[in-house]
Simulated assay, not measured.
Amino acid sequence: MALYLISFEKGAMDHIPEGDLPEVGKAGHAVCQEAKDAGVLVYSGGLMYDTDDERYAADPAVVETDGTVTDGPYPESKELIGGVFIVDVPTRGEALEWASKVAVACRCAQDVRKFMYDPDAV
């Protein structure tokens, strides 16, 4: 088995009309449940940015090697992650199948990357 990160950029779902968001949320939750039932879901969730609601405020920050904290994303970042879906599956093909399900549910393209295996980290 191998861990795969399936993710999409912040703003990737901005094209979806507000009235369609409940349907998209329901479809996304259905894919999560399907992955849970299949025993492959490790974690799934969206990331919050720039919100006025303090319960959800989580603006990006960079913590340097000396401990200095700077608000905002890392300067070299080209994009911010909007959501993640991590699966533990035997093959890249299966990861791509799950990414396809997420893409259809969330109505946006997905990036698929395999985590490096580190036996000391698990």
Rank of each mutant, 00 (worst) to 15 (best):
F8D: 12
I81H: 03
T68Y: 02
T65M: 12
C108K: 05
G72D: 09
P119T: 11
V40M: 05
I16S: 01
V112E: 02
A105V: 14
K101E: 05
K26P: 03
V62N: 10
L3Y: 14
D111C: 12
L21C: 09
G82W: 00
F115I: 02
P17E: 10
A57Y: 00
K36D: 12
V24F: 00
G82S: 07
F8N: 13
D53P: 10
A99H: 04
H29V: 14
S7E: 02
F85S: 10
M116L: 06
A57E: 01
V104N: 01
G19V: 08
C108Q: 06
D50H: 15
G25E: 01
L47K: 10
A105C: 12
P17F: 08
E79I: 07
E54T: 15
D71C: 11
I16G: 03
D88V: 10
D66Y: 01
D88H: 14
E9Q: 03
A99C: 01
S77E: 07
V42N: 12
H15D: 15
A27W: 12
I6R: 08
E79D: 05
K78D: 02
G67C: 06
P119M: 02
Y56V: 15
W98I: 13
V102W: 08
I6P: 02
V122W: 01
C106A: 11
A2M: 10
D52F: 02
I86E: 05
Y43P: 12
P60N: 05
H15V: 15
G46H: 01
G46W: 00
S100C: 00
K26Y: 06
P73N: 11
V87H: 08
A109Q: 01
R107Y: 03
P75L: 10
E79S: 10
P60S: 10
A30T: 15
V62W: 09
L47N: 13
R92W: 07
F115L: 02
D20G: 03
D120S: 13
W98A: 06
E97R: 12
G46S: 11
T65I: 13
D118V: 13
H29K: 00
A95E: 02
G83S: 15
Y43C: 07
Y4W: 10
A103Y: 08
D66Q: 07
D111M: 05
L41V: 15
E76F: 08
Y74Q: 08
E23H: 05
D20Q: 00
P90R: 00
Y74C: 14
G67Q: 05
L5H: 03
L3H: 11
V87N: 03
